[in-house]
Design a protein around this nucleic acid. Structure first.
Length: 488
DNA sequence: ATAGGGTTAG
């Protein structure tokens, strides 16, 4: 095997370099060296599978480039593209000389694999070296803070950005705008946006999204308009999706139609991402028939527009349409994901197709390879609860392992159903589990009081209410207890 | 060579 591999490689190299090699008599070895390295790097950039990555890796070692930082950085990035963070980390650990690209690449790799914390750890390690962070390093780290909603570290990085003299840097500032926005600090995001000396589509999109995600949709749309009149650039599909999404969150059909008009004028209506946003927007603005129109114009819809349409139809009680669409995507071999199943399960729930819903839940993993999680169980528990199949809902909830807020949600659903059907025993059980999952939830206290009261256990109800007053979680009786999580 | 923004659920 190995014997065959090496001559082949040398053959392929000599053919690719045969035209340049003979002319370079003076420095043949040096040029061969440079060219062969370029060849390996080119190979790494187009690597599609682990086998070719590892074979190129071993060739890099064989040809004596194992200590070459440039080649190793390419290898790291190649492994990261193939989602092999373990290989990338191992290589990184073995590098004798790491530069800022080595560090930043590995950090970005962790962020991309939902391990934003690891990126921050790496930065701490990096600070113990002589390598200095650049704008890309900061952008990657600030992005990690956005994902983690970690304002504290975000602020520290902001300070470091300033110390490093990058306070007007486009890339660093755009990520700061995004970070402050994701941490709900709109004013600070805007201050940075205003302080930037150059802005591009990305920075404007970050600012628009910040307003949109912080319940200031009108300001977001105003900024979108401002950008369009500024003549700086044309909005791209990122900015357009954000604007459409803003209209959806506002529930404003008129703004939605105007934005749809902008999309058409810019010739962006063929974009899958934009179409998904439009389908969702029309459904949220009360026009599911428009959603259907947009959806049917997509030639090959991916799982996202399919899901948007399934969810939209489900909300309008068009359960049969949702299920038809689901069937259609299965026939077209478009793989449903976890969100798609939330949609179809909702459809079953809202249209009273209970047994169909149960059948779907049970076939999710085996037939479609999607492992049901808390949100699916909550959905099905709600479906069973609505039609009074409380026992089954209760058994289902007991059978699943869920933690934290998701657990409170699941048992909140059981609680709601058991109250509705007067099952005080199960209501009590559910209240207790909500308390176990999340003791800070004041709504659960109220519910527990209600449950005790319902059961006629007034003494316990009274005691608990005093305890609540004591711990400061008291809520006036009669207020809504369904709000498990209040917006901050 | 490395980087920043967007789309489906609750």
């Amino acid at each position: 095997m190995k014997r065959a591999l090496r001559p082949n490689l040398i053959n392929s190299l000599s053919t690719s370099f045969s035209s340049s090699l003979p002319q370079q008599h003076k420095l043949p070895s040096l040029h061969f060296h440079t060219n062969i390295k370029a060849h390996f790097v080119a190979k790494l950039q187009t690597c599609k599978d682990l086998a070719s990555a590892t074979s190129t890796h071993s060739n890099i070692v064989k040809f004596g480039f194992s200590n070459d930082t440039f080649a190793a950085n390419h290898l790291i990035n190649c492994y990261l593209r193939l989602f092999r963070i373990d290989n990338a980390q191992k290589l990184f650990d073995e590098m004798p000389q790491r530069n800022v690209v080595s560090w930043t690449s590995l950090m970005a790799g962790y962020v991309g694999l939902d391990q934003a914390n690891m990126a921050l750890c790496l930065f701490r390690q990096m600070q113990g070296t002589v390598v200095l962070p650049n704008e890309f390093t900061f952008a990657t780290l600030i992005n990690a803070c956005s994902i983690l909603v970690n304002l504290e570290i975000g602020r520290r990085l902001h300070a470091l950005v300033e110390v490093s003299g990058l306070q007007s840097n486009l890339v660093a500032c755009s990520s700061l705008v995004d970070m402050y926005g994701k941490c709900n600090h709109v004013v600070e995001a805007r201050l940075i946006f205003d302080s930037m000396c150059t802005r591009n589509v990305v920075s404007w999109t970050s600012m628009i999204t910040t307003y949109s995600q912080n319940a200031q949709g009108h300001t977001a749309l105003q900024l979108f308009k401002e950008f369009n009149h500024s003549g700086l650039d044309r909005p791209n599909h990122f900015m357009l999706s954000s604007a459409i999404n803003t209209c959806a969150s506002l529930g404003s059909l008129s703004d939605g139609k105007i934005t749809h008009g902008v999309v058409i004028r810019l010739g962006q209506d063929a974009s899958d991402v934009i179409a998904s946003a439009l389908v969702d927007m029309y459904a949220k603005c009360g026009c599911v028939n428009y959603s259907a129109k947009v959806f049917r114009r997509i030639s090959i819809p991916s799982v996202i527009p399919y899901t948007s349409m399934i969810v939209g139809a489900a909300k309008y009680g068009l359960g049969t349409l949702s299920l038809q669409l689901f069937q259609e995507m299965v026939v077209r071999s478009i793989k449903p994901n976890d969100v798609t199943f939330v949609g179809v399960l909702h459809a079953c729930s809202h249209s009273g197709l209970v047994d169909k819903g149960l059948e779907l839940l049970n076939s999710m993993n085996g037939k479609y390879g999607v492992i049901p999680d808390a949100k699916h169980y909550t959905c099905v528990a709600d479906m069973l609860g609505r039609v009074g199949r409380i026992e089954e809902a209760y058994e289902l909830a007991k059978s699943v392992q869920v933690e934290g807020d998701a657990r409170a949600m699941l048992w909140g659903t059981i609680l709601s159903a058991s109250r509705l059907y007067g099952r005080v025993d199960i209501a009590l059980e559910a209240s207790n589990r909500i308390l176990e999952s999340n003791p800070e939830v004041d709504g659960a206290y109220v519910t527990l009081v209600n449950a005790y009261a319902l059961a006629g256990d007034w003494e316990n109800a009274h005691n608990l209410r005093s305890e609540m007053k004591h711990t400061g979680v008291y809520k006036e009786p009669g207020s809504s207890w369904i709000e498990v999580k209040e917006p901050t």
